[in-house]
Design a protein around this nucleic acid. Sequence first.
DNA 1: TAACGCTTGTTATAATATAACATTATAACA
DNA 2: TGTTATAATGTTATATTATAACAAGCGTTA
Lengths: 132, 132
Amino acid sequence: MRHKQVNLSKNQQIVLETIRKAKKPLKAYSILSSVKKKGINAPPQVYRALEKLVELGVIHKIESKNAFVDCKNSECETSKATAFSICKKCQKITEIMNSKLSTYLTNFQDNTGMKYEKYNLEFYGLCKRCKL
Amino acid sequence: MRHKQVNLSKNQQIVLETIRKAKKPLKAYSILSSVKKKGINAPPQVYRALEKLVELGVIHKIESKNAFVDCKNSECETSKATAFSICKKCQKITEIMNSKLSTYLTNFQDNTGMKYEKYNLEFYGLCKRCKL
DNA sequence: TAACGCTTGTTATAATATAACATTATAACA
DNA sequence: TGTTATAATGTTATATTATAACAAGCGTTA
Ligand SMILES: [Zn+2]
Ligand SMILES: [Zn+2]
Ligand SMILES: [Zn+2]
Ligand SMILES: [Zn+2]
């Protein structure tokens, strides 16, 4: 199974395909301009689709970039435990799938009495290529 | 020592004080309207100050909120290793200062060959009060 | 003083996101 | 089937967040 399947509306499918075809995280207005030929004309249509897709966990938002990537992790049922590495130079973004890390963070507790239900972690650095 | 001291320009001091006085994370335009009486008139002045203060690590940006809080962690020399807990209900934000967590994340490595230099982690949940 | 770099101020505009309301498609069921 | 409810979509306008571009001031030093 390469991708998670869900019942998606037409606009949601169009937006999702656009994101999947891209090699980079896409911004909402960049998605909008890509999908204008497919009949999506205005920001709310894109933002609604994005919201639903994030909710379903088939895409994630990179908060520090205001950009969206499709989820490559078949274990992401929702967007509740996400970790990314972001190359500061080439902007390449990779979803980190590391069960030790996710177990560690999902079970993380401190003494504030807060119950953590969700987290998002973004690492920044230089990727293998850009390090050279 | 309650707060880190650095040589700050006038605008930086004004913005920093405004953030420190606030009990909640502040957004840039909310800061702007607070400081208009002190002679700061336009967005770039606020954004420049914010940028510098983040760089110095005296404030942090909560990426998922586009908001700024002052750093309460005397060990934050820069904004290179940050973790926050965010209450989904009351929006209360706390900087997590947990040396085990920061050691774990600072040393985190995976097999992508990427060298991580910086991270930002945001936990969401319900705080002690809102859990009731 | 003149030239330079740096910080600040100012105007304008770009980029990101949502409110509000109108319209159309779909489903449930009398 | 027609009727009603619900969800999805379309549309216009606007709010919010952020930066570009340039002008003005100011201290340093050649
Ligand atoms: Zn995922
Ligand atoms: Zn790179
Ligand atoms: Zn800090
Ligand atoms: Zn709360």
